[in-house]
Design a protein around this nucleic acid. Structure first.
Lengths: 205, 205
DNA sequence: TAGGTACCTATACTTTAGGGTATATCGGTG
DNA sequence: CACCGATATACCCTAAAGTATAGGTACCTA
C-alpha cells in the first residue's frame, strides 16, 4: 500500500483526483490545500511514498516552496503538478530533484501509469515537453506570432524589460520594441502587462 | 437521466470529474476539451440539460465564447467553471445568462448539490463571492497590501494603466503611482507586469 | 525575377512608468 | 496628546514603453 499526498488548493481537484486514485486498491490517498498543509502532513507519523504538489498554490512562491519541501523530506518522492507551467519550470523542478512532472493535460490513466513509474523508482517527464525544450522555442504558433515575437513574449512573461530581452536575444532594444508592438497588435493587448496576462491566460508560458 | 457536458482543456479534470459524476446513477457525462468541441457536441443529436464550461480554455476568449455558446444553444443550461476567475467575471457570466458559477474551490459534494440545484431550474452563485463583491474589495490581506494597494493591484491585473486605475478609483494618477510603487516593493516585483504575473500566480485575481 | 514575409536597425517623438521628497488629513492607539 | 499607518496630493526628474517612418538583408515562393 503506497501512501500518496496530494497538495492542491482546488478542492474539486483534491476530491475528484483523490477519489479516482483511491479507487485503486493499492493507493492510500491524503489531500491538503497548501504547501504549509503538506509540510504538516509530511511531518506526521504517516510515511509518504509520494507527494504530488501543485505548482500554483499558497506558499509555493514559484519553485522555492517545492524545493524547500524536498530538502526537508528526502525520504518522500516529490512530483510537481501544473495546469500550465512551461517546460522551463518542469525542467527546473527536475533539476531540483523532483521525481516527475505531471501536466494536467495528462489523462487519469496516464497519470496512474506515471505514478506507478515514479513509485518504482524511475522518474517521469512527459515526452511532449521534450519535443519543445526551452532552447528551440519555435513551433508553437501561438496566435500567429513569429518566432522572434514568440521569444519576446516568453521573456515578457517573466516581467523583463525591453532592454533585458534585447540582451537575452542579442539584438538592439529598438528591435524588441518593434516585436512588442507587433505582438500587442496580434494579441489585441493594450500594453505589455495585458499581453503577459493574456499569454498566461491562454496557457502560453 | 440528465445529460451533462463538461468542457475543460485539462484531461485530468475531465477524467476525474467525469468519473466522479458518472458515479451518480442519474447523470450521463460527456466531455470535450475546447469550446469548439463543446459546440460540436451541443449541435449533435444528444440533448444536453447542462453544460459546465471552463473559463480558461481554447476558444473562450474571455467570456465571448461562453456568451456565444449560450446564445446558440438556449435550451441547454450553462454554468461557468473556473479555478481562479474573480467575482467580476462570475457576475458578468451570470448577467450574460449563465445558470451558475462553479469555482474549483468547491468540494465535489458541493458541486453535485449545485448541479442538482441548476438542473432543477434554480441558479447557483457561491456565497463566498457575494461576501466580496467588486464594490467592496477589501479584506483579502494579500501579502500585507493595504486596501488601496489591493484595489490597485486588482485593476493592474486587467492590464490597466495608472491613469485608468485613477479614474476607476476616483483619485489622481500620482496617487496610483504611489500605490503601485509601494505595492511593487511589498510583492518584490520588478515592475507592474511582474506584479500582475505574481498576483495571478498566487491566485489573487 | 518580382513580391511577400520575417527580421534588424535607425531616428525621432510622445506617453507612461517609476523613484524621490515633501506636505497634509484622518483614524486609531499607547 | 503624540505617534503611526493609510491615504491623498504635489513637484520634479529619469527611465522605460510605445508609436511612426524609413531603409536594409535574407529567404521563400509564384
Amino acid at each position: 500500500m503506497a501512501n500518496i499526498l496530494i497538495a492542491d488548493d482546488h478542492e474539486l481537484i483534491r476530491d475528484t483526483l483523490g477519489a479516482y486514485l483511491s479507487g485503486l486498491h493499492d493507493f492510500s490517498i491524503f489531500t491538503v490545500d497548501s504547501l504549509e498543509g503538506a509540510m504538516v502532513e509530511l511531518k506526521s507519523s504517516t510515511v509518504f511514498d509520494l507527494a504530488i504538489v501543485d505548482y500554483r498554490m499558497p506558499g509555493m512562491n514559484g519553485l522555492d516552496g517545492f524545493a524547500l519541501a524536498m530538502r526537508r523530506f528526502p525520504a518522500t518522492k516529490f512530483v510537481l503538478m501544473s495546469g500550465m507551467a512551461g517546460s522551463d519550470v518542469a525542467l527546473k523542478a527536475m533539476e531540483l530533484g523532483a521525481r516527475g512532472y505531471f501536466p494536467k493535460s495528462l489523462s487519469a490513466e496516464m497519470m496512474i501509469g506515471a505514478i506507478r513509474l515514479v513509485l518504482s523508482g524511475d522518474r517521469y517527464y512527459p515526452f511532449q515537453l521534450v519535443e519543445q525544450t526551452p532552447t528551440d522555442e519555435a513551433g508553437n504558433n501561438f496566435r500567429n506570432l513569429s518566432d522572434r515575437e514568440t521569444q519576446t513574449l516568453r521573456h515578457l512573461c517573466e516581467g523583463k524589460s525591453n532592454k533585458e530581452i534585447a540582451r537575452a536575444l542579442n539584438v538592439q532594444e529598438v528591435t524588441i520594441k518593434l516585436h512588442v508592438k507587433n505582438m500587442l497588435a496580434k494579441l489585441n493587448a493594450k500594453n505589455r502587462t495585458h499581453a503577459a496576462l493574456i499569454a498566461r491566460e491562454d496557457g502560453f508560458c
